[in-house]
Design a protein around this nucleic acid. Structure first.
Lengths: 193, 193, 193, 193
DNA sequence: TGGTAAGCGAGACGGTACGTCCTGTCTTGCA
DNA sequence: TGCAAGACAGGACGTACCGTCTCGCTTACCA
């Protein structure tokens, strides 16, 4: 009853986002226009612009709508196992088709458009990082990590190489590579054996 | 004498790249058009298109032209000191104005345009990575690093967090952060001291 | 009231045609570009292309818009006097500035572009010829011309020499020349008196 | 021997004109560019521009080169028969493929480009008209036409309707129509039987 | 229940840039 | 030395989208 009001609006919103992802998969984010999304969705351009201020904003929302309830950290007590499990899930989702190429392009857009960058950080990157930090902090509080363990740095060392591999080197991420990174993080690559 | 041939062509090429950087600094890569570069450079559009197939390709070359002879690794015998010195130099160049914003945008473009990605990798990312790997290998050969030291992984752990910080989190890189990463790489952040 | 609808579209159409004629008079049809018309009219190029498929089509309409209600045949009962009167009016309009040069150029365009030729015939040449034929037919029906008088041929003999003079020889048409043609048409130039 | 000098230049000239006609037949005068002619002829653009100042000038020469020795008036003593014979020959050449469409287009060009108009008049229209006038004058001198027969007007009445039919109405010319025009010229279409 | 306003599709509009084509001029390098 | 080859500045082409703006039509909520 209560969601009857606005259900029409929600229908449009959902239809537009669905169409955006659909078209994105077909022709790629870069070649896509708001005009094309609106036409394909059977919607006036104004109806799109009323909801999103740019192609990047639309895509960010569209991708996030796929994401709900995913990528939450387990806490089994074993921080390393939990990190592995969660990061494997993340790259399964974000580095593989159909989301992978669109996520990559969205980050590209963010590097060109500060508004998109801010929104991406606020709605995805930062919350995700905070989950990682929170999980590490829990481990530290439980004494699994040393008291001076640098949480933010660890988060960077976990995420950085994966983004580097995926975005800069542009090779697919493997679970094996993830494991090597986690391993190195906790054991170091010490100058001497 | 010998560079008399083609000097006209080289003049245009240089003028266009110079103008591209100039305009890029003024209005940003995203707002820039090949049309505007051509006009400002006093050159026909075709003269630009004859040399570069896209805005991204032009910018890649333009940025690389600033780069020559920079960012070469020293070898003082102390691998950690050399890495620090070189990475500090790199972020001084690539993360700060005037190059920083343009380099960031160029990576954004590479994420949207596979041709630019390939060229960027071939002409900058890979050579640079190979220099890092070569320096690490020299250290390993000299016994400063353990014989099973994973060179590629180390390169990823050095570069990844910095790119992550600069591109994803979008906060300026500090020398202090670089040092923390290097430190963590070689000493680990082990679960127990 | 009723023309409230679409008045915006009609405004643009009229503004574009007016500008086209204006620019045409200033620099001549040949040197004119749709781009220049659009710019001068303060209109996007697409707004021109939406209405006309080529420069020729635009100019045809523009010239025709000047023409309304002109060039209608009188019927005073004296067919020769009526022809003279009407043809004198026609060449006053079509062979003299400002319309003359533009009309000449439009016919040139029609000779290069079949679509323009077809439109010109449909919207001007043929209707005008039919008026001449109709006036001659009325005269024939009234017995002023012999029953086997060849209407189409007469139309050709009236119009042809004038177009020939104006377009091919490219000398200005005089009323005196028109009169000689009319005279010859009806009295012949017989081999012997 | 003496024409050995310059034979190379004459070769180019001829090759360019031949290519121009060839390409003109294939894609039409309007779509043709000097660039395309030069490339197809295996000749530098400069070599074309050195000889002709515009596409129209090149085509005029090219068409005239086909024309040599054609379209000369016979004088059998019977002026009407001679006119018929000559005009039939003219329309066979000028109104039918392959020359017809190119000649039509050339006149179109002349209406847009005064230089071409002048050259066309000087090298083709006027000489041809003078031949007609000369033949009529001969007939008048021989008493076949009345002493006050208006030679120029007659020429206009002969040529005008044919050009009108071919260029304005854009219907193919028939010998029958030519005969009707000639007939009308000499007998009139008198208002009374 | 009828009136009214909000949302909507459709797409026109002024702009900007695209990437292509051709013009007429100007090198360059081969023969 | 004369030419093909084609680079060059410039201008226009016709197209694609941008983000804004009317236009009527459809809903759905209120009075």
């Amino acid at each position: 009853m209560s969601d009857k009001r606005g259900s029409r609006a929600a229908d449009r919103t959902e239809a537009i986002m669905r169409t955006a992802l659909e078209l994105g998969e077909e022709i790629g984010y870069a070649k896509l226009s708001i005009e094309a999304v609106a036409t394909r969705a059977g919607v006036g351009k104004h109806t799109v612009y009323r909801r999103w201020s740019s192609k990047g904003a639309l895509f960010l929302d569209s991708l996030l709508s796929l994401n709900e309830a995913h990528l939450d950290y387990p806490d089994t007590g074993d921080v390393i196992a939990d990190l592995r499990q969660q990061i494997h899930a993340a790259i399964n989702l974000l580095d593989r088709a159909p989301v992978g190429p669109l996520y990559r392009a969205l980050i590209g857009e963010a590097l060109l458009n500060p508004q998109v960058a801010a929104a991406l950080n606020d709605h995805f990157i930062t919350p995700q990082a905070e989950k990682t930090v929170a999980r590490l902090k829990a481990a530290r509080d439980q004494g699994q990590l040393s008291p001076d363990f640098d949480l933010d740095l660890a988060m960077g060392i976990l995420s950085g190489p994966l983004y580097f591999q995926a975005l800069i080197i542009q090779k697919p991420l493997t679970h094996e590579y993830v494991d090597r990174v986690i391993d190195a993080l906790f054991t170091g690559m010490g100058p001497r054996p």
